[in-house]
Design a protein around this nucleic acid. Structure first.
Lengths: 191, 191
DNA sequence: CCGCCCCAATTGAATGTTCATTCGGTTTGC
DNA sequence: GCAAACCGAATGAACATTCAATTGGGGCGG
């Protein structure tokens, strides 16, 4: 992952863009190849099959998201601030990477996702769980299962990002703050 | 919609089940036909194309969801109770219709959804908006845009249903109540 | 520094399969 | 008997994947 050939990266990028606008069906390998500026055969030098390409791309994308979580959740500020940062950081990341967002959504709701591990072994959720666990320990959050907190928070971020990304709803920054505040009101320990 | 031929209904049902387990790709018309107990040609008697079949199935499914919203949101009880009913009603509906849930998710994150109307013209959201509008009028909810309230509520239902349906997370009824309570805490007007 | 060799990277035409869709014909209901 | 509903083999296009042939670069003996 660290040192990736340019071609491989180009294949990833093209796949994500094409899947975003055309879906898994709708994006033949030949098109991925043309779009990435390589020959069809080259793709098979890097990936065993279309399925493997998709699966690896998902892992690759997920690592980027995990990096955001780790960056924002690690800082040493009061939990509330950290939570706001994490939420905004993820939201911004998805806004800036809308093909990733879309690819993600298609992947998790497709049969490709059958191979996904249970929540406990999913690195993304593991990191999130730890974060919410900390919030509970510090008394900032209601003593509710971190799974629940993580799921609700994550879904609020995704649904907000999807809404604005799809153009079906426009939100100004004041409204974003409102959303974030609503979520926080729901999960925070009343003081 | 009211009077649908048995074959048409069987085609809808088979399509939903197959798409649930195999995705849009992965479900050839020939398989839909076999599964529904009709000939391939028969499908084309009812639908112009595969795309049209999928699109009509989405409308058909959406109407069922809208029916749930109308049933639960119309009753003449205090808003809070009504909200709880609506949330639980939708959650239960998705639990009992997991192929529909899965089909829905795949549809909205696929390019098929390009043809969806903006939120304002989407009947599902129109009904939801009206419901939340009422909550604000009655002073039960914070004065936040109904779009936001509707989107957040909807996403919390869907993500909870998805989690349990996928088997990645199991929730007992106490935890469900907790979730519902968290959401309500977030959006309710402080009393 | 040169020439040579090796192997990984790359190519894209060819292959075989899968699929959506068609259509000529048959059945069914009225 | 005539429409509408239904059938399913046939058609042709699209696609994933393969593979024989080409390229390029870098190590190494001279």
């Amino acid at each position: 992952m660290e040192h990736m050939s340019d071609k491989k990266r180009a294949i990833f990028k093209s796949t994500m863009e094409l899947v975003r606008e055309r879906g898994f069906h709708g994006t033949p390998m030949s098109l991925v190849a043309k779009h990435a500026g390589v020959a069809a055969g080259t793709i098979y030098h890097y990936f065993e099959s279309k399925e493997q390409l998709i699966t690896e791309l998902f892992d690759y994308a997920q690592q980027q998201v995990i990096a955001v979580v780790e960056r924002e959740s690690g800082s040493d500020v009061p939990f509330k601030d950290c939570f706001f940062r994490l939420w905004s950081g993820l939201y911004t990341f998805y806004q800036n990477n809308q093909d990733l967002l879309r690819f993600f959504e298609q992947f998790v709701s497709s049969p490709y996702s059958a191979g996904m591990p249970p929540l406990e072994e999913d690195r993304y959720y593991t990191v999130l769980f730890a974060f919410f666990e900390r919030g509970i320990q510090e008394g900032a959050l209601k003593p509710v299962s971190p799974k629940i907190l993580a799921t609700l928070t994550h879904s609020s971020i995704l649904s907000t990002a999807k809404m604005t990304a799809s153009g079906r709803l426009e939100l100004d920054s004041g409204e974003l703050d409102q959303i974030l505040q609503l979520i926080w009101n729901g999960i925070a320990q009343d003081s």
